[in-house]
C-alpha cells in the first residue's frame, strides 16, 4: 500500500524528516507517536504534497506509484486522505459544495458519473448523522466557526464520503472530549477493511484504547526510533518519551 524509504524533508530550510522508512500493508493500522517537534505532522503534510514542504531525499511508493511525482489532487484521487490537525476555515464556500466537488472528483477518477445534487445531499446528511454532526453544518462555510471537535468530525465525515485507500489522521484525537473521541474511533473502526489502511498520528496513547493498532512506531529526530506492537504505546505512556530520545541521541 505505502512504502516510504529513507525520506528526508525540510520546511523553510530546516531538516525535519531525516531518513524515515515505513511500510504499510493493506488492512493495517499503524500508530505513529512521538514528542512535539519529532516530525509527526510533517510526515502527513509531505505525503499530501503541501507547498513549502520539500523532499530532499528518499522515495514514497503508494499503490505502486511514485507518490512524490503526483500533484496533491492526484494523490487524493488515488486514495490518499489526510485528516488535518488544523482544518482550514473557508468562509463563503459551503461545506456541501466542497464535499460534493470532492466526491465528484473521486467518482470521475473511477469513471463514474457525478452524483446529482439531490442524491448527494441525502448521502451527506446521512454521513453527518453518522459522525454526530448536525446536518445544519453542511450549509455553513467549510469549517467556518466550527469548534475544534466539530472540525474533527467534519474531517471524519469527509473521510467517510471519500472512502480512501489510506487515511492519515493527524492528531485527530487532540482536543477531543471522550464522547467525540469515541465518535472518531467508531468511524475509523467501521471503515477498517482488508483493503484500507490507516496511519494514526497521535501524541497520546488514549486513542489507541479505542482503535487497536497493528503496529506502533515512535518518531524521534525525524526518523523512526522504535517500532513494536500495541504494547509499545503502553510502555510510552508509562515512561514518557524522554528515555527514547536519549536512546536516539
Amino acid at each position: 500500500m505505502l512504502k516510504i524509504d529513507n525520506l528526508h524533508a525540510s520546511v523553510e530550510g530546516q531538516d525535519i524528516l531525516n531518513g524515515l522508512s515505513l511500510s504499510v500493508k493493506p488492512g493495517e493500522v499503524h500508530a505513529i507517536m512521538g514528542p512535539n517537534g519529532s516530525g509527526k505532522s510533517t510526515l502527513g503534510h509531505v505525503l499530501a504534497g503541501r507547498p513549502g514542504y520539500t523532499v530532499t531525499a528518499g522515495t514514497v511508493e503508494f499503490l505502486g506509484q511514485d507518490l512524490l511525482a503526483l500533484d496533491t489532487e492526484e494523490r487524493a484521487r488515488l486514495g490518499l486522505f489526510l485528516a488535518f490537525q488544523y482544518p482550514v476555515e473557508i468562509p463563503g464556500v459551503s461545506n456541501m459544495e466542497f464535499m460534493k466537488a470532492a466526491v465528484d472528483a473521486m467518482r470521475t477518477q473511477r469513471g463514474e458519473e457525478p452524483l446529482d445534487a439531490v442524491s448527494f445531499m441525502k448521502l451527506a446528511r446521512e454521513t453527518s448523522k453518522a459522525v454526530d454532526l448536525d446536518p445544519g453544518f453542511l450549509k455553513r462555510g467549510v469549517n467556518e466557526g466550527f469548534s475544534g471537535g466539530e472540525k474533527k468530525r467534519n474531517e471524519l465525515m469527509q473521510m467517510m464520503l471519500l472512502q480512501p485507500r489510506l487515511a492519515i489522521m493527524d492528531e485527530t484525537d487532540s482536543g477531543l472530549d471522550i464522547d467525540a473521541l469515541q465518535v472518531v474511533a467508531r468511524g475509523v473502526n467501521a471503515m477498517r477493511s482488508a483493503q484500507r489502511s490507516f496511519v494514526l498520528v497521535t501524541h497520546y496513547q488514549r486513542l489507541l484504547n479505542y482503535i487497536e493498532p497493528d503496529h506502533v512506531h515512535v518518531l524521534a529526530g525525524g526518523r523512526i526510533a522504535r517500532s513494536g506492537d500495541k504494547s509499545l504505546a503502553l510502555e510510552l505512556e508509562a515512561k514518557g518519551y524522554a528515555w527514547l530520545e536519549n536512546e536516539v541521541a
Partner: peptide, 13 residues
C-alpha cells in the same frame, strides 16, 4: 492554505 486543503480532497486546482 485553502487551495491546498481543497486539493487534498481531490478537487483540481
Amino acid at each position: 492554505n485553502a487551495l491546498h486543503y481543497l486539493r487534498t480532497r481531490g478537487v483540481s486546482r
